[in-house]
Amino acid sequence: MGPGNPKDSEILKHAEEIGMQIASRKWVLLTGGRKAGVMDAASKGASEAGGEVIGILPGDSHRGMSDFVSIPIVTGVGSARNYINILSSDIVIVCGMGLGTSSEAALAMKHGKPTLFTKVGKSQLDFFQSLTNKKILFFDESDALFEFIEKNLIKD
C-alpha cells in the first residue's frame, strides 16, 4: 500500500523492488490497481518478474488501471476498497504515506494484519506507534523487510 502521488521518486523505485521481491517468491501482489504511484510501481516490478498482480479498482470500469495488473477486480466503491485491500491481504507493506495509505495502515493494524512500514517518515511512524501497544515494524531496505517476513510471518 502506498500513495498514488508520492513526493519522492525513491519511493517508486523501492515499491518496484518490493513488487519484484514478492514475485520472485511466487507470492501474489495485491494493490489498489490504478496506474498511479506506488501501486503502479509495485505492479510493474511484480509483473516484469513474472508474478501475478491483483488490482482492486475503485471505479466501475477498468479505466485508469495499471498496465501491469493481471487480475483486475472492479468494485465501484471508491475509497471503500481500502477495506477490500486490507481484508484480502495476508501481510500489508506500507511504502510511503498519503491519506489513503494512512487509512489502509490503520485498518490493517485494527484488523490485526501484520503491517510493515518502509519509506515512511519518523513523525508518521510515531503517529502510528501512538495508536498501538505493539511495536511498529519499520525497514529501510527491502532485503531486511523480506528477511523478516520469511523468518517471522511465513509458515511452511
Rank of each mutant, 00 (worst) to 15 (best):
M1V: 13
G2E: 12
G2C: 11
P3C: 12
P6E: 05
E10M: 14
I11K: 10
I11A: 07
K13G: 00
E16F: 08
I18A: 14
I18V: 15
I22W: 07
I22L: 12
I22V: 15
I22D: 00
I22E: 02
A23Q: 06
S24Y: 14
S24P: 04
R25Q: 07
V28R: 07
L30G: 10
T31S: 10
G33C: 07
R34Q: 14
K35T: 03
M39P: 01
D40N: 03
A42E: 08
K44N: 08
G45D: 01
A46F: 06
A46Y: 08
E48V: 03
G50L: 11
G50V: 11
G51C: 10
G51Y: 11
E52S: 04
V53T: 12
V53G: 05
I54W: 01
G55E: 12
G55N: 01
L57G: 02
P58E: 00
D60C: 03
H62A: 04
H62M: 13
R63Q: 14
R63I: 00
R63G: 04
R63M: 08
S66D: 13
D67Y: 00
F68N: 11
F68S: 05
F68L: 09
V69C: 02
S70Q: 15
S70K: 01
S70M: 07
V74A: 05
G76D: 01
G78I: 00
G78Q: 04
G78P: 06
S79T: 14
A80I: 05
N82R: 09
I84F: 00
N85Q: 06
I86W: 01
I91R: 04
V92C: 04
C95H: 07
M97G: 15
G98R: 12
G98Q: 12
L99Y: 15
T101Y: 01
S103Y: 09
E104H: 03
E104R: 08
E104P: 10
A105E: 02
A106F: 07
A106V: 09
A108I: 14
A108W: 02
M109R: 13
K110R: 13
H111Y: 15
T115C: 10
L116P: 09
F117I: 07
K119E: 03
K119W: 03
K119Y: 08
K119T: 07
V120S: 03
V120Q: 13
V120H: 10
G121Y: 10
G121T: 13
K122H: 01
K122S: 13
K122P: 01
D126R: 13
F127M: 11
Q129T: 08
L131K: 05
L131I: 12
T132N: 07
N133F: 04
N133S: 15
N133T: 12
K135D: 04
L137D: 11
F138Q: 09
F138G: 00
F138P: 00
F139E: 06
E141T: 06
F148N: 07
F148K: 04
F148E: 05
E150R: 02
E150S: 15
K151V: 06
I154Q: 06
I154G: 14
K155C: 05
K155E: 12
